[in-house]
């Protein structure tokens, strides 16, 4: 079994279902539009901000504000790519065609990750430039220290969120169960844990909290995070590796 055949097959699968188009388009539109909106609002609010808020003002990070919502569409994409196989019964046809389960899973995830990366990077660059356009005189430039890293990091962040969802979906198999856990977790639980002072120390090791550090250029004044941008992305990558490894072990072990 040449792996390249399976990759080609997975590409046909991913491009031939409607859910790929609508989840990814939604991620692009929501991330960019919300980023522009919040950038425009921030520009108007800047003069009313406190001194320390003005010092912590991070135009790059603000243009990525849409990701908090846009990432939910990436989660749906990641979940559906994997769990569609189970909810439709296609998995039995797929594994009969490719009985090497490692090849099957790696090819599927490689194709979906490649697509996420292209979409994620494009979204990140567009969100940055349009966001900066909204910020007017407070804008950052792509040549400023750390900005290019943050913009590329934004694309990587979206990709890793999708990959994490693929891993969770491979473990849980059911799309409803996977979404029912991931959506509230990233939209609510993680934010609550990260903002309540008692749980902040744990919250910042969650995948999204750690990973989003890569998109920060200006470190907030009172920040005590024990890792830097790449360290944060590293923590997120560990979560992704764990989720995918769990998905693989269960796929290998279970009856299809």
């Amino acid at each position: 079994m040449a792996a390249i055949q399976v990759v080609r097959s997975e590409w046909t699968k991913i491009r031939s279902v409607a859910s790929t188009v609508w989840t990814l388009s939604l991620a692009v539109v929501v991330t960019i539009a919300l980023g522009m909106l919040i950038s425009a609002l921030s520009k108007n609010e800047f003069d009313k901000m406190s001194r320390s808020d003005q010092l912590s003002f991070d135009p790059t990070f603000i243009s990525f504000a849409g990701m908090s919502l846009g990432q939910l569409a990436m989660i749906v994409f990641g979940v559906l790519v994997v769990s569609n196989e189970y909810s439709t019964g296609m998995i039995r046809t797929s594994l009969a065609a490719v009985p090497q389960r490692a090849t099957f899973l790696v090819s599927k995830i490689a194709v979906a990750t490649g697509l996420s990366l292209v979409v994620g990077l494009a979204t990140s660059f567009v969100a940055f430039f349009l966001g900066q356009a909204m910020l007017g005189s407070h804008k950052a430039s792509i040549g400023d220290t750390g900005v290019l890293r943050a913009v590329i990091g934004g694309g990587l962040y979206m990709t890793l969120i999708a990959m994490f969802s693929m891993g969770v979906a491979a473990m849980l198999r059911s799309p409803m169960l996977s979404l029912g856990i991931l959506m509230p977790f990233f939209f609510l639980v993680s934010n609550i844990l990260g903002n309540v002072s008692a749980t902040k120390k744990i919250g910042r090791y969650l995948p999204d909290q750690a990973g989003s550090k890569i998109m920060q250029v200006v470190t907030p004044v009172d920040d005590s995070t024990p890792y830097g941008p790449w360290g944060g992305l590293g923590i997120m990558t560990l979560w992704v590796v764990a989720a995918l490894a769990g998905g693989y072990v269960l796929l290998k072990k279970r009856d299809a």
Binding site: Q5, V6, S9, T12, K13, S16, N84, R92, A97, V98
Partner: peptide, 27 residues
């Protein structure tokens, strides 16, 4: 070649693409 369950396919995919992805995976 096996027919296990006529419903073991993604309903949103066209008949052609369903067969194409199977064909590609086996060269």
């Amino acid at each position: 070649g096996a027919l296990l369950d006529a419903k073991a396919m993604h309903g949103g995919r066209s008949a052609f693409n369903h067969l194409l992805c199977l064909a590609q995976s086996n060269g």
